[in-house]
């Protein structure tokens, strides 16, 4: 059952992606979270590169380069700045404790692997197992957004979710049209800026980045 090495490498990178998603889920420190996000971007960029190389689709090279630029360099840099400016380092407590989150995470992985199984059987592509992993990463990132109290980890979760989607696109269907990719990249960048602006606003309003304060906004 030997597969070509390119596929094996993509499988390995996919597993790393999932691993990083889990690591983010368990990480308490915001700095490490941002670094993990950068690593995830790097893995994503590498896998896109390998897909590009093995399928000979040249536009994926650009896509890989774009990922590298945006998700490994620009966004982490922005987030670092944001963190320093806002002076938040620790996500003091998550809503559910970490071991429980991990167990839920394992459940999600099993769920998404099984969910993806019939889809994968339809696909002729040899990378069919990857849809399950991509789905699992997306769900794990959502779980992270759900369980965090502070706003920055939630943004990181959002961005990581986008990573998962992007991975599904490149690995399973060998990439989206360039225009769409550029559009998404721009969206993500803009979203991060907007989030940044919002954070400053939130902090000015509540003197804290704890989003539980937002509960006060509802009218009684």
């Amino acid at each position: 059952m030997t597969m070509p090495y390119s596929i094996q490498i993509i499988n390995l990178l996919a597993s790393l992606l999932l691993l990083i998603a889990f690591a983010m889920l368990s990480q308490r420190r915001i700095l490490s979270l941002i670094n993990l996000f950068a690593w995830q971007g790097l893995v994503l960029s590498l896998s896109t590169f390998v897909v590009a190389y093995s399928t000979g689709q040249h536009h994926l090279y650009y896509s890989a380069a774009l990922t590298l630029l945006l998700k490994v360099l620009v966004l982490p840099w922005l987030l670092h700045r944001l963190m320093r400016k806002l002076n938040v380092r620790w996500d003091v407590e998550t809503l559910i404790n970490i071991p429980a989150t991990m167990l839920v995470g394992i459940g999600l992985v099993i769920f998404s692997f099984n969910l993806a199984a019939p889809i994968s059987q339809l696909s002729e592509s040899i990378t069919r197992g990857l849809i399950g992993i991509a789905l699992a990463s997306v769900l794990l990132s959502m779980l992270m957004m759900l369980t965090r109290r502070k706003a920055i980890p939630q943004v990181v979760g959002f961005l990581a979710m986008e990573n998962g989607l992007f991975f599904a696109a490149t690995s399973a269907t060998h990439g989206m049209p360039m225009v769409v990719e550029l559009g998404i990249a721009l969206d993500v960048l803009v979203a991060t800026f907007i989030f940044g602006i919002f954070f400053f606003q939130i902090r000015e309003t509540f003197d804290s980045l704890d989003i539980s304060n937002m509960e006060k906004l509802k009218d009684d």
């Binding site: 597969m3 499988n11 597993s15 999932l18 691993l19 992985v109 692997f113 993806a116 197992g129 992993i133």
Partner: peptide, 11 residues
């Protein structure tokens, strides 16, 4: 996770 990935990827 390794075990689960083994099931998914068969490797």
């Amino acid at each position: 996770l390794g075990l689960l990935i083994h099931f998914l990827l068969g490797a």
